[in-house]
Design a binder for these strands. Structure first.
Length: 970
RNA sequence: GCGCGAGUGGCGGAACAGGUAGACGCGCCAGAUUUAGGUUCUGGUGCCUUCGGGUGUGCGGGUUCGAGUCCCGCCUCGCGCACCA
């Protein structure tokens, strides 16, 4: 034990931190008042001079492994930002809930027989303790959990809103655009009154239709609908998954099982109705360009044309509709290709044998078109996405035996079936233009089909390749239209005009985005508030019957199958609870008590996370999801749009700062935007976007080590060996291992727990280290050795205020000297700018510099120390509170005013001027900061080094007073 | 292949608007304290150097009085998408 009994050690930090965490909790320091409702405190709300701000993190999934040091990075950043803005006088709401439904808890439950609620609650407790120890300033009254019935009743309520809505593409919006969701009852009304013509043209009125026919029409409009459609079925997982959850390799993100396209009856969300708004409104939010690009790419809007190709000799068959982005190349369409699943295929295929003279390569080795198509379709349906991927560019297909007429040339061109054309994009059929499309070129190669170039390739372009570039049209004229010589864009426009005029097609837009598969065959998720009547018609459960609670089941596991058994059928666990599934209800629709069957699928994990930020605002509201006043207060549109938005942009509202990982760029962040827009259309929220500013934080990577077999070894047991030459190598149990940097976790055996950091350094040191490592949006390697630097800073800060031996406050009540005052105010100015822009690493560097300056003083003036403590507070709140308190302040500094820089003190009297010769620094001058150019030039030219260099004369002198002179000799 | 981003000391990273490259921290070196180790404190630390200076921000060119920063062409790495007609 040294005599420095009051040194800032890990033990002292621990005592200070726990004490302040208790006090914050007892005083409700971070409880943010609402303007009305359960958390109302209008007086307090009005007292905030700086307005209000909502700062959120993507909420965590409570996994069993607890936190590692990578998790809190974003939480610390939002906490620092929140604390800073509280000191600017704002009512800051920062809180954190739990994404509690999900697969890992269910899988664990299957293994152990423990109810997933029990394990999830235990995990939440562990996480909550670890997060509390970090000193986050959260309003814990709002820590919602998606698995609680009080929460998911509103998830179900939103589902019903979507179920009971349709997208009216003609309806006008407030912003002047067209298209918005409307209640389904209004659609029924319009049909019933005759205001809207019925889709079927058999002359009957709405009232003449049977209830089942009416239901069919209504259901086909709903934004949430059950439909039989090709979905991603993962037999090994026992569940279907969304497109967004299928990996590049065609496997399920969860469990890594093969995924098959299967026609199954599942719940879908009509997110495609919002394609344009989801793409366009990205201009209105402040998000990283990368994430905007990812969403735009996922939505995949492309402009082109729809063209109809009549089928030769079959006037009764519908023409084949294709989508093309290159209508200008129509003259080069020498064949057509339909997706194997295309509904028109059966009608096209002629009966009987192949026509005499059919190219044997087209027949797939079968005796008739029908046999060939059937065999090809069967083979295609058996292929998993993995296999499709592996086959890659090797184009396969068979001839259907049918020909279509190219409307531009009148030529009869063969129609093929091939799986390189996807049913889910465009119309599921293409016009093949081998001259201008690589894939079509390859197919033409394989099947000996003609190729006509319709764009003049640039010089030197290989003879044996498609030309996809820009150039004048060639070979593109008939009696009515001549594109030859026109550049691509002009030719496109001319062709579209001609197509429209002749009734062959029209300009159109196509999207990659598809409707969202919304049901899962799992136990641990939200039940659908849906029941089916005896006719199989789906009915929404009345609001008064919400929540539809998740029943207890004897067995949590869905039925899983051999991972490659594509023909297996999903069987959700809830289907086994007959007494829950079969239910007598009065839905209040005049039918009285009837027997119904409940929907046994559950909602995907994304459901709860789609809207949790809204429930934070008003978590105890029993009547509404969120009250209008509260929603508008926290996330209503602001007067000024976000920085960087195009001119004339109207602010969409939303969370002021949302921080989370980029892995959710096209999942959570797209789904939440979709739900929010539906809620906006239906009048439940005033904001049009959920997150007006989103920031994606980087990952913290930690060193991981592998032995000579490539197996990870326990990183904490690895020793570093420094060789004679200074080269560093690593060993584990005596054997050499190699180092890499990777995601922290069990799989790489490189876990670093925050608990160990709390024990060795304290939470403030950990916070400071994580914020000081580098820019927040960058990934960076964890280095436990380097944390000590952050601890040393806090120790020096502590020592500047508290005497280490006596424990007494050692600041003096003397005015701050002029030099120190200038350093102080420059620091205030810089730190404010850094905090505003989440530049915490540079803010910390500034604070260390200021602290080092104070260390050099014989006596530390109180005023300088206090301002420094206030500036450190957002980053290291416990030590700051403790020092603030020891400096004689009874109140927490949470709402103390953040220091303000005096502009007068930012102007320096003298500055260092560099004197360059030919652009290289050769000397320096101390000059008055208001020195004139002429004076400075004179001084610089008089310097001995300059005199030497300019003996042969001066060509030019550049003067940028007061900082720089550049002399260029002859 | 397409899209986005990044290459700066031994390491993490600074550098507002083209104007002192390497702030701050780790590590390393030296000294002080300590019985010693550790801790803590003080000073030094891009590279080369004949101690005058030379050189230096992935590579090659360009613009400029002046380039880490702007332009053109490459290379490498990371991330995302990927038969999207």
């Amino acid at each position: 034990m040294s005599e420095t009994a009051h040194r800032y050690t890990a033990e002292l930090a621990d005592r200070i931190e726990l004490a302040w965490q208790d006090r914050w909790e007892a005083e409700g320091t971070f409880d943010a008042p609402n303007p009305s409702g359960p958390f109302a405190d209008p007086e307090k709300v009005a007292s905030y001079s700086g307005g209000h701000m909502l700062v959120l993190d993507m909420f965590p999934y409570p996994s069993g492994a607890g936190l590692h040091v990578g998790h809190p990075l974003g939480y610390i950043a939002t906490d620092v930002f929140s604390r800073y803005h509280r000191m600017l006088g704002k009512n800051v709401l920062h809180c954190l809930g739990y994404d509690a439904f999900g697969l890992p808890a269910e899988q664990y439950a299957v293994q152990t027989g423990q109810h997933p609620r029990v394990t999830t609650e235990a995990n939440i407790d562990i996480m909550a303790r670890q997060l509390r120890r970090l000193g986050l300033g959260l309003d814990n009254r709002r820590a919602i959990r998606t698995m609680d019935p009080d929460y998911y009743r509103w998830t179900q309520w939103i589902f019903l809103q979507i179920f009971n809505a349709w997208y009216d593409t003609e309806a006008e919006r407030a912003d002047g655009g067209r298209g918005r969701a409307r209640p389904i009852a209004e659609l029924v009304e319009e049909y019933a009154s005759g205001a809207r013509p019925l889709p079927a043209e058999d002359g009957r009125d709405w009232a003449d239709l049977s209830p089942a026919e009416q239901a069919d029409i209504v259901d086909s409009h709903r934004l949430a609908y059950a439909s039989e459609a090709p979905v991603n079925w993962a037999p090994g997982l026992g569940s279907v998954v969304a497109n967004e959850e299928v990996t590049n390799e065609g496997r399920s993100e969860r469990g890594n099982f093969p995924v098959f396209k299967r026609n199954l009856r599942q719940w879908m969300m009509r997110i495609t109705a919002y394609s344009d708004r989801l793409a366009d409104d990205l201009d209105r939010v402040q998000w990283p360009d990368k994430v905007k690009a990812m969403q735009r790419n996922w939505i995949g809007r492309s402009h082109g044309a729809r063209v109809a190709f009549p089928v030769a000799g079959l006037p009764e068959v519908d023409p084949i509709e294709v989508f093309t982005t290159r209508p200008d190349t129509l003259f080069g369409a020498t064949f057509m290709v339909l997706a194997p699943e295309h509904p028109l295929v059966d009608a096209l295929v002629p009966a009987g044998e192949w026509a005499p003279g059919t190219n044997p390569a087209w027949t797939g080795g079968e005796a008739s078109p029908e046999a060939a198509v059937t065999a090809y379709r069967r083979a295609a349906s058996r292929k998993s996405d993995v296999e499709r991927q592996i086959e890659g560019k090797d184009k396969t297909g068979v001839f259907t035996g049918a020909y279509a007429v190219n409307p531009a040339t009148g030529a009869e061109i063969p129609v093929f079936v091939a799986d390189y054309v996807l049913m889910g994009y465009g119309t599921g059929a293409i016009m093949a233009v081998p001259g201008q499309d690589e894939r079509d070129w390859h197919f033409a190669d394989n099947f000996d089909l003609p190729r006509i170039r319709t764009v003049q390739p640039t010089e030197g372009h290989p003879e044996d390749e498609a030309f996809t570039g820009e150039g004048p049209a060639i070979n593109s004229a008939n009696d009515e239209i001549d594109l030859n010589g026109k550049p691509v864009a002009e030719a496109k426009a001319a062709m579209i005009d001609w197509l429209v005029e002749r009734g062959h097609g029209e300009a159109t837009v196509s999207y990659k985005l598809r409707d969202w598969l919304f049901s899962r065959q799992r136990y641990w998720g939200e039940p659908f508030p849906i029941v089916f009547d005896a006719d199989g018609v789906a009915h929404g459960v009345p609001e008064s019957m919400l929540p539809v609670e998740l029943p207890e089941v004897p067995d949590y596991s869905p039925r899983t199958f051999d991972p490659d058994d594509a023909a297996s059928e999903p069987e959700p666990p809830l289907g086994r609870v007959r007494e829950w599934v079969e239910v007598d209800l009065d839905l209040g629709d005049g039918r009285g008590v009837q027997r119904y069957r409940r929907e046994t699928n559950t909602m995907p994990n994304w459901a709860g996370s789609c809207w949790y930020y809204l429930r934070y605002l008003d978590p105890e509201n029993r009547e509404e999801l969120v009250s209008a006043a509260t929603e508008e207060y926290w996330i209503g549109p602001r007067e000024t749009p976000v920085a960087g938005a195009p001119k004339g942009t109207v602010d969409p509202g939303g969370v002021d700062l949302y921080i989370g990982g980029v892995e959710h760029a096209v999942l959570h962040l797209l789904y939440a935007r979709f739900w929010h827009k539906v809620l906006f259309d239906l009048g439940h929220v005033s904001s049009e976007e959920p997150f007006r500013t989103y920031f994606s934080q980087g990952y913290i990577q930690a060193p991981a080590y592998r032995d000579d077999r490539g197996q990870p070894v326990e990183a904490s047991e690895v020793e570093e060996v420094v060789g004679d030459s200074g080269a560093v190598s690593f060993t584990w149990q005596g054997q050499p291992v190699t180092r890499e940097f990777g995601k922290i976790g069990k799989s790489l055996k490189n876990m670093v727990s925050p608990d160990d950091m709390y024990a060795a350094y304290g939470a403030d040191t950990l916070r400071l280290y994580e914020m000081g490592m580098g820019p927040l949006d960058q990934s960076k390697p964890w280095d436990t050795r380097a944390i000590v630097g952050s601890q040393r800073f806090l120790q020096r800060l502590w020592r500047n205020v508290v005497d280490e031996e006596s424990g007494e406050v050692r600041v003096v009540d003397e005015p701050v000297d002029d030099a120190t005052l200038r350093v102080l105010h420059r620091t205030i100015d810089a730190v404010r700018r850094d905090y505003d822009e989440l530049g915490f690493n540079t803010a910390i560097a500034r604070l260390i510099e200021l602290n080092n300056a104070l260390t050099k003083l014989e006596r530390v003036p109180r005023d300088a120390a206090e301002q420094l403590v206030l500036m450190v507070a957002p980053l290291a709140p416990h030590i700051a509170e403790e020092l603030w308190s020891r400096l004689g302040h009874a109140e927490s500094l949470t709402h103390a005013d953040f220091p303000v820089a005096d502009p007068a003190l930012l102007v320096e009297d003298t500055v260092t001027c560099v004197v360059q010769i030919r652009g290289k620094v050769r000397d320096r001058l101390e000059v008055a900061s208001d020195i004139t150019e002429d004076e400075l030039r004179e001084k610089a030219l008089a310097l001995p080094k300059v005199v030497d260099a300019t003996a042969g004369g001066v060509r030019t002198v550049i003067v940028r007073a007061p900082r720089l002179v550049n002399v260029v000799p002859m």
